[in-house]
Design a protein around this nucleic acid. Structure first.
Lengths: 106, 106
DNA sequence: TTGTTATATGCCACAATCCGCATATGCTGG
DNA sequence: CCAGCATATGCGGATTGTGGCATATAACAA
């Protein structure tokens, strides 16, 4: 997450990859992949992480351009960034689908 | 790269993602994606990293199961792991193709 | 206003990663 | 054997990521 400038494709790719390379964040992306909105409290409960950690994890996903948020009363609803490039979407899908497909020989 | 046990799909996914989340390693995977063998000396020259660094980067890719190596006289030839699962291959392809496709608005 | 719930952030310690440098190891050729 | 090229590894220091804790901010409800 040390990337600060997403000017070039390489940096953008790296920011996405490192954003996904964390159990909590990958789990959050899996949850968000249903296309629905999810508040931080739901995500932290589902993934078993503390509130402050979940908030920071979501900030990383947001900064990488993978998720967007919206204020809704006391809640902040996160969802997948609807303006994802085709390549970003492919990358996310590949990462998220990975786990679910080979649960057999775990 | 803190992952030590690749028992479950989650850990395997994370190890692949963090292995790819580095300029030198992603660059190496892009080079290896031509399906040919490449020695460390070639990779370090192409990517502009020192010898010891390149060696360690390749060790990370190997440990993540993305590449395999072969002794050939004084050289060690790296190539893509031919036994990649379909999901692993999809993940790698998505990451490697990312950069090359959006060179326009960089 | 006060209290409560939800979320974000400042701070600090710890762990993981990264890098360069020196050196070890493996192989070849003389 | 020795010299030289290619690769791997031990080590120490710098950078980065992570986690918990406390606290700030935002919105709501009474």
């Amino acid at each position: 997450m040390r990337i600060v400038a997403y000017n070039n494709p390489m940096q953008r790719t790296l920011s996405i990859l490192s954003a996904l390379a964390s159990p909590a964040r990958l789990g959050a992306m899996r949850i968000l992949s249903d296309g629905q909105e999810h508040c931080v409290c739901e995500l932290m409960d589902s993934l078993g992480v503390t509130q402050s950690r979940m908030s920071r994890h979501m900030a990383v996903l947001k900064e990488a351009g993978l998720a967007i948020d919206r204020r809704d009363a006391q809640w902040v609803r996160y969802r997948l960034n609807p303006d994802l490039s085709r390549q970003s979407a492919a990358l996310i899908e590949a990462a998220v689908n990975f786990q679910e497909q080979e649960t057999d020989h775990a």
